[in-house]
């Protein structure tokens, strides 16, 4: 067996999720190759070479891979797909974008968002916002799989694989990349954070999120949000945790003014410890919380920040 892992990176570093995907690849078994495709991403390829368990890194560096457009990444992967039994990528916005395109081009039914590997053709994946877990077996020749990072440990950095250049594939010219507007923050990334402080509609405004930021800074935490908080314009879309946002499983998740809709729980209920602060004693979030406090957040959050001083 030979597994190709498509790396998510920023040109310099691997993004969280990629090393967890390597762990999933190791559970499948066989040789692991990481593909780093991008523009000016040699540093990311060096980072990939250090991931434990990796046999080889392929580096495809060309201007038309800036932004990792689905059309061009697919065309590139198709030039080498025949050499692999499995093609894996993290089930993040990055992998979800192009993996189905690769799968359909290979006439393969993709297996999305696996949280466990049972064997080389059988995987467990959450369905219905994580309210059920399906064990599915693929009969396709090549398995195209996206991996839920929270289901697998980080592979670690104990390797020294060779980096080989891979000739760039065609520029399909189907889509023109006009740049990204990335949210800037000095806090850790949501999917990599050890602690997350998350706010919901109960925060009342974007201004009030400053209360959570102060708490987050005390804890070295990332800040997340419910869909309602994003839709209300309190915080940008990349803060959203849930079924259709980010899936997180930090050591500690602090939910503030979040009711606990199933779509939100889907994104955080695998956190190790969950705290909920809500003024409604009946809030459904309490059903998944390890510790809950029934109190007005505008009183409790500043107190908590103080208590941690």
């Amino acid at each position: 067996m030979s597994v190709l892992v498509i790396a998510e990176h920023d040109g310099k570093q691997l993004k969280p999720g990629t090393t967890n995907t390597v762990t999933a690849a190791a559970k499948i078994g066989g040789d692991i190759t990481i593909l780093v495709a991008g523009h000016q991403c040699a540093d990311a390829a060096q980072a990939a070479a250090k991931v434990t368990g990796v046999r080889k890194v392929l580096l495809a560096d060309a201007p038309h891979y800036a932004g990792a457009g689905a059309e061009n990444i697919t065309a590139l992967v198709l030039t080498i797909a025949g050499q692999y039994t499995h093609i894996l990528a993290p089930a993040t916005g990055f992998g979800k974008n192009f993996m189905p395109r690769i799968a359909a081009s290979l006439d393969v039914q993709q297996v999305s968002d696996i949280s466990a590997v049972v064997s080389d053709d059988t995987f467990v994946r959450p369905i219905y916002a994580g309210n059920a877990m399906a064990t599915v077996q693929s009969s396709d020749r090549i398995k195209v799989v996206t991996v839920r990072a929270t289901g697998f440990d980080d592979a670690g950095a104990g390797g020294s694989a060779p980096v080989e250049n891979l000739a760039a594939g065609p520029d399909t010219g189907l889509a023109k990349f006009n740049g990204q507007e990335l949210s800037k923050s000095d806090r850790p990334e949501l999917t990599a954070a050890r602690i997350i402080v998350s706010g919901g509609r109960g925060m009342g405004s974007g201004e009030n999120f400053k209360l959570l930021e102060a708490l987050a800074d005390k804890l070295g935490a990332a800040v997340g949000a419910s869909r309602a908080a994003v839709d209300s314009g309190f915080v940008p879309n990349d803060y959203q945790v849930g079924q259709t946002g980010k899936i997180v499983a930090p050591e500690l998740y602090i939910a503030v003014g979040i009711s606990g809709a199933i779509q939100h729980l889907a994104g955080m209920k695998d956190s190790k410890v969950i705290i909920a602060i809500n003024k409604d004693p009946e809030a459904p979030i309490f059903a998944v919380a390890d510790y809950w406090l029934v109190e007005d957040l505008f009183k409790a959050v500043p107190e908590l920040t103080q208590a941690l001083a």
Partner: peptide, 16 residues
């Protein structure tokens, strides 16, 4: 012209 939600924020594309 489309704006896409990506994990770090937004991305802009022009597609034919």
């Amino acid at each position: 012209d489309v704006t896409r939600e990506i994990d770090g924020g937004m991305e802009k594309l022009t597609i034919t």
